[in-house]
Nucleic acid binder design. Structure first.
Lengths: 220, 220
DNA sequence: GTCTATATTGAGATAGAC
DNA sequence: GTCTATCTCAATATAGAC
């Protein structure tokens, strides 16, 4: 990230950039993409307009950078989950836990995404949120399928299992967005997933409740 | 509403009113609450401004009427579910099915609600969506508790079970909002709920109807 | 009263000095 | 990299003709 030449600057490289990203997130959240003005964003960041244009080209640029930051990490998680080894349940839990963790770490950016996705048109550049949603679905579906193939899960409708799992992840995230007080945390998500694994276990092989409550995977 | 003809109405009572509600829903969905002008709404409904004023007083009035329409039915469902008899699972499924049905019947109003809830401030009158969400949580939690008390569900964290069930309902609704093509339908929701009932069944006992989690879709 | 032309504002964006 | 100063443009507001 730092410039190769190590040129001296008034503030160290990227500080203003980070401040801008932060203030843009805050203001996009509070007033929407259209409602947040470049003036407010730079004022809140304690810099002047040209600084924003220097780093991000324009208002759309800083918005896209926000989105890209979140989604690139998300893509990494999906990719990583394909190479990780372990039981299907462990891999699913790992994936959900990591996605949830990413969500919690950037919940303010997530709010902006939700507002753009569900909210009215605001002139923001198009982001194909549905594609990311489908990617997650595909990965989860693949892991479920593998679990069935290995006999870890019972035979049944793969999509039903996928929806049950995504429902757990989804409700955890949205409970955070909606009621930060009484919401689902990482452990809660892990426990809800356990309920689902038990529900999709093969007919004869249901392990007793709470036989493995750890979220990091039973054996490693 | 006043069916008495105190005023001169050119169309039969309620027709213009319904047309206004429909066009307002459409325009609130497309352009947001703030973006939809009274002019457009009445034009789309084929009536004149005074007609809107007569039925709804103003833009806020027609918006509140939309919200009230959805939520009053929702409240009825919650209330009704308290008096219905049957197993906890049946009552939970019945409640979720009915809520989902209500959602599907008024999915365009639901879109407006989502946009207001998650979207940026648009100057719309405040609606306490969180309260409705909490109400649903409370009813589901109560039904889960009863299921545990009657031995239908195993002992365990009541909230975890509640979140699993709400996750299923939630993901069904949002899959409809997001990807109308490949979404969850009533049967799908029922099957996902079965998975969860199995997952929260008492340790030794298998839910008779949940013994087959296979849906008609099979593997996809 | 309503309409239209003009003024004003406030938005995003840029040039060039340092 | 950052600043001061400025530009363009569209929406809004207003004034004055009709």
């Amino acid at each position: 990230m730092a410039t190769a030449k190590g040129k001296k600057t008034r503030v160290s490289d990227g500080v203003a950039r980070e401040r801008l990203l932060k203030s843009a997130t805050l203001l996009f959240t509070r007033k929407g993409y259209a409602g947040a003005t470049v003036r407010e964003i730079v004022a809140a960041a304690g810099v002047t307009k040209p600084v924003l244009y220097y780093y991000f080209r324009n208002k759309e640029g800083i918005y896209l950078e926000l989105m890209r930051g979140g989604f690139s990490r998300f893509d990494s998680l999906l990719e990583e989950s394909l190479s990780v080894r372990g039981s299907a349940a462990d891999r699913l839990t790992r994936l959900c836990t990591q996605v949830f963790s990413l969500f919690l770490d950037h919940i303010d950016v997530a709010r902006v995404m939700y507002a753009i996705y569900y909210g009215p048109p605001q002139g923001a550049p198009f982001i194909d949120f549905d594609a990311y949603h489908r990617n997650l679905q595909d990965v989860v579906r693949g892991l479920v399928r593998e679990g069935i193939r290995k006999g870890e899960f019972g035979k049944g409708n793969v999509d039903d299992m996928m929806w049950a799992i995504l429902g757990a992840l989804n409700v955890a995230m949205e409970s955070r967005l909606c009621q930060p007080g009484d919401a689902v945390d990482q452990d809660g998500l892990g426990r809800v997933l356990k309920i689902i694994y038990r529900g999709i276990a093969p007919a004869g092989k249901r392990d007793p409740r709470g036989s493995d409550v750890r979220g990091k995977g039973g054996r490693k």
